[in-house]
């Protein structure tokens, strides 16, 4: 069995590790390096500028707008998705067909979702204004993506719309493993459905909910594709839908400020990591073990 073991291992691992090193590891490491330079992609040797890029970030109105909007998304989207998904998962108990339907948006590319919803929000021929007129709410018609106060909310609704189904399936699968007899015992002791949900179901499925918080928190710090495709500008109107990822993309590939864009990437990385760790901490609970 020992014969040729190392030859096999080297042969098997060299290609995947080379691929990973060249396309994943080296760019990540280079990003930390570039973030301290003012490289514009043309000069042969990037000039070291220390912490200048990070200082600029704090006075860059566009980056701060992106930070604010991602922050708002972080407050709204995970909470909304988890609340809706928990309610629907509890309600779909015994009727699986709904889950099959709810899950479908999860399979669509975020780019396709963005194009679809751009049509939905279109002022004159869109689904939303058409629906409002159809039920006599003509005064509610809006140019949804053209009004600075509404545009970001419209983007968040799309994010919620496309995420809920996945968590309905995740949570309802977890709920099915909650033993019936505990629920029945609680009901006999006089617990109403709300108490049963809060005191029994939720603690027993908490691990899934925790996963949801972290994934959705990370997703809320992105939003690039939806904003880039759906909104005017993109990032408009009046930068009301600017997100950090869009700022990075524009800084790098429209303005050629690759050093500064890398600093944005580093900032996004540390933010994402801190939010993930924070959410992990905040949502930590005593793990409930079923004997």
């Amino acid at each position: 069995m020992r014969h040729g073991k190392y030859r096999f291992l080297v042969g098997a691992l060299i290609v995947p590790l080379a691929l990973y090193g060249v396309f994943v590891l080296s760019p990540y490491l280079q990003a930390f390096q570039l973030a301290f330079t003012n490289w514009n992609g043309v000069d042969s040797a990037p000039e070291f500028t220390g912490l200048d890029n990070f200082g600029r970030l704090w006075s860059d109105p566009l980056f701060l707008a992106g930070l604010r909007h991602n922050g708002l998304m972080l407050l709204v989207v995970p909470l909304a998705v988890i609340a809706i998904a928990l309610a629907l998962a509890a309600a779909t108990k015994g009727t699986r067909v709904y889950r099959v339907v709810y899950f479908f948006p999860q399979l669509l590319s975020v780019a396709i979702i963005a194009v679809l919803w751009q049509f939905v929000y279109t002022p004159n021929s869109g689904l939303l204004n058409g629906a409002l007129s159809a039920v006599g709410l003509d005064s509610w018609r809006r140019s949804w993506l053209a009004e600075p106060d509404l545009a970001l909310w419209c983007v968040m609704i799309v994010l919620i719309w496309s995420s809920v189904g996945f968590y309905v399936v995740l949570f309802s699968a977890a709920m099915e493993s909650v033993p019936e007899d505990i629920v029945e015992a609680a009901a006999i002791d006089g617990a109403g459905p709300v108490t049963v949900f809060r005191r029994i179901t939720l603690p027993l499925i908490w691990e899934s909910v925790q996963v949801g918080w972290i994934y959705l928190g990370i997703a809320a710090l992105d939003g690039f594709a939806l904003v880039q495709i759906m909104t005017v500008g993109p990032g408009g109107p009046d930068n009301s839908t600017e997100v950090m990822g869009l700022g990075l993309y524009r800084t790098a590939f429209a303005f050629g400020k690759f050093g500064y864009a890398s600093a944005m990437g580093v900032a996004i990385f540390f933010l994402t990591l801190s939010i993930a760790v924070l959410l992990l901490r905040v949502t930590k609970r005593e793990r409930v073990e079923l004997a």
Binding site: P27, M244, S262, I268, F269
Partner: peptide, 21 residues
Amino acid sequence: LLVAGMLFPVFLALVPLFFVV
């Protein structure tokens, strides 16, 4: 080393990746 790749947002790698490719 491999699993650590899951921790990083792709945005971080984007600029250098463009030049590598």
